Computed example of a mutant assay.
Amino acid sequence: MEYDQEKVDEAVLALLYLTICELDEGEARAWKSHDWAALDRLHAKGYISDPKSKAKSVVLSPEGLQRARVLFERHFGKAPRPK
C-alpha cells in the first residue's frame, strides 16, 4: 500500500513527544521504537539524532522538540470544553 510519508513522519514525531523520558535545557530524549524509515527521515530533516546507535532513545533537537510539541497538540490534543 502506498502512503503519505510526510503524514507518517508527522505522526511519528508527535508520538516521540509522547514518549519523552528526559528533558534538559531544550533537549529531550524519546524512545525510538517507531518505524525505522520514518526515524531515518526525521534524522535527515534534523529533528532527531541518528537512530542507528546502540541507545534505545534518540535526542530531539531544539527544533525537533518544538515541532513535536506542536504536532502532538494538533493531532492528539483535546479541544477545550465549552463553558
Score class of each variant (00 low, 15 high):
H75Q: 15
G77W: 11
H34F: 06
K32R: 15
R67M: 12
G46D: 06
R29E: 14
A79R: 08
P80M: 09
L15I: 01
S53L: 01
A30M: 06
W31F: 13
A44V: 01
E25A: 12
V12D: 00
S33N: 10
F76Y: 14
H43F: 14
V59E: 07
R41I: 04
E27D: 04
H34I: 01
M1V: 11
P80S: 02
K54G: 11
P82S: 08
V8W: 06
A68D: 12
D24I: 03
A55K: 11
D9E: 02
E6C: 03
L42Q: 00
L13D: 12
D24W: 07
A14K: 07
L23T: 07
G26Q: 03
L23D: 12
S53M: 01
K52D: 09
E27N: 07
E27L: 15
G46Q: 04
R29S: 09
A37T: 12
L23M: 08
H75L: 15
E27S: 05
E6A: 07
E27H: 12
V59Q: 06
A28H: 06
D24K: 14
A79F: 02
R81M: 02
E73S: 03
D9T: 06
V12H: 00
R67K: 15
V70P: 03
D24H: 13
L71K: 15
E63N: 12
L71M: 12
E25N: 15
